[in-house]
């Protein structure tokens, strides 16, 4: 189980690295691979309830935009549902903590939202089902000016539309 997860994370990291290299062009063609063909209504309902129970907040390290391994299970649940129901849509809101400059943090928030978007696309979600926006450091969750507060603010929020 653990080993499988490790292997998966490494695989994804590699894919992300390749994707990052060709900046942005990837998103359009991805997603068609897994279709809704096999999904029955009951199946979709089941995936939906799993997705709704999954975490919608994903956290990051300072000045970093790579996904943490602990985010993957929950993101998989969202990806499965989004792939099964092509009418479903999510908005990914990227955020940064207050340290560092505001415009840079706006760019960092976008990178974080894009990393989540890329992961979902690799898992079969259509890029058109995903909208991303960055709020930089302008909408902190926590007002605590310490490591604890800052780590809560470096996040992507996944919101079903």
């Amino acid at each position: 189980m653990n080993i499988l997860k490790q292997a998966k994370a490494v695989g994804i990291a590699a894919v992300l690295a390749v994707l990052a290299g060709c900046a942005g062009q990837v998103n359009e063609q991805a997603g068609g691979a897994s279709s809704t063909s096999g999904a029955t209504a009951a199946n979709v309902a089941q995936l939906k309830s799993e997705a709704m129970a999954a975490d919608t907040l994903f956290f990051f390290e300072f000045d970093k935009s790579d996904l943490k391994q602990e985010a993957l299970d929950d993101l998989d649940a969202h990806a499965k549902y989004l792939s099964a129901d092509r009418t479903s849509k999510v908005r990914l809101e990227g955020h940064a903590d207050e340290r560092g400059t505001r415009a840079y943090n706006l760019a960092l928030g976008e990178r974080r939202a894009n990393s989540v978007a890329r992961y979902l696309v690799i898992q079969g979600v259509n890029r058109s089902q995903i909208e991303t926006v960055s709020y930089g450091e302008e909408r902190p969750l926590s007002l605590s000016r310490d490591d604890n507060g800052w780590s809560r603010n470096r996040r992507v929020e996944l919101i079903y539309q």
Partner: peptide, 25 residues
Amino acid sequence: GLNSAPSFSPDGRKLVLTLSRDGNP
């Protein structure tokens, strides 16, 4: 994507700014 951080040129005719419309800031 991003549309951010504008700054005027000294002649006031242009802005330098950040866009991520091509996938990257």
